[in-house]
Computed example of a mutant assay.
Amino acid sequence: MLKYPPLEKKRNHIIQWLLLSLGILMISCSSDNGSSRQGPRATSAEGYRIETQPHTITIRSTGELMPYESVELRTPVAGNVLRIHFNEGEFVREGALLVEIDSRTWQAQKRGLEAQLVSAQSELKRRKRLLEIEGASQENVDQAFATVSDLEARIEELQVRIDLANIRAPFSGTLGMRDFSPGAYLSQGEMITRLVQTRQLKINFDIPARHAAIAQKGMEVMVISSSSSDSTFARVYALEPFINANTRNLRLRGILDNEEQKFIPGDFARVVMDAEQNENSILIPTESIISELNAQVVYLVRGGKAQRREVEIGTSTRGRVMILDGLQEGDTIMLTGLMGIREGSNVQIRNLNQEAGR
């Protein structure tokens, strides 16, 4: 037969088990309380202590190259093309004859009127002499004078048409293509070709409004072609008298020599302009800046706590961004550990003034 322990022995085992469980529970609670007293763990981050330094503010922009002069040559009078005096794509001097519109009819009319004018002038002289001896009235003289004036006006009008029929280059430049041949009939205002002056070029570019005060006529900027990477210098000769309300930019216009024809009108170019030298600039690594919806933010570290700070940024160069407002010399900012950081978070800085990943 099986033998069972007495009831008293079972009671003792239960009491021992309860005491053991209670002890384990008390130790666990004590450990949890200790952890609570230590507080949340600090975020380990690399930091950057701000120091002022000399910095040349460089403005970079994109410009559009334009011919110094450009015009669409159109027929000033209608008529048949008698002769073409240019080759497509060639350089011509100012005043060079390009196209002759048939003006022979007008020339013939002019010669007939000139003959009538000679007779009318003789008649006017005769009537003036008769007026002196009272052989003619003043009215007769006035009629003769009106006839002479009318003939002179008609001759002048025909001469204008004849001159307009000889289409000339209004300035020196390079001609474009043509889409007509000798004998073609051209209506008034019809396109002949385009004439552009490319030995000098203009360039339009914009700078931020905050740099408008330093923009001056005569200052030089570097121009780098986006197509060929050729570079040269342009001289600013004009500034818009207002800032664009939409872009908050000021437009400048420069002129550059293009004797070697390295730059092509219509191309885009990079523009680099040294604006000013600032001896006490604040530059911080780009990786320290967090871009939010309407703000640029960095996190300062003070007393082991993270502090959110909005900053106003300026120009950037070589992995650095110039800070215009929001920071001062001696501040320490976070370079790493920014993912999930919040205002008031505990931060432990390591590797001060060593940029992340370098």
Rank of each mutant, 00 (worst) to 15 (best):
M1Q: 06
E8D: 14
I14C: 07
I15T: 08
L22P: 01
M26A: 14
R41Q: 12
T43M: 00
A45K: 00
R60M: 10
T62R: 10
M66N: 08
M66P: 00
E69P: 00
P76A: 06
S103F: 12
A108E: 15
Q109K: 01
L113Q: 08
L117F: 03
S122I: 15
L124A: 10
E132L: 10
E134W: 05
A136P: 05
A144E: 07
R154H: 08
I155T: 14
I162C: 04
I162V: 12
L164I: 05
R168K: 14
M177I: 15
F180G: 04
S181F: 13
S187P: 03
L195T: 11
K202D: 06
N204L: 13
D206I: 09
I214H: 01
A215V: 10
Q216D: 10
S227P: 01
D230N: 11
F233M: 07
F233G: 00
N246M: 10
K262S: 11
F263G: 05
V271F: 05
N278Q: 09
E279T: 13
S281E: 10
T286N: 09
I290N: 01
Q296I: 01
V298R: 02
R302D: 12
R302M: 09
T315E: 12
V321T: 13
I323C: 05
I333R: 03
R350S: 12
N351V: 03
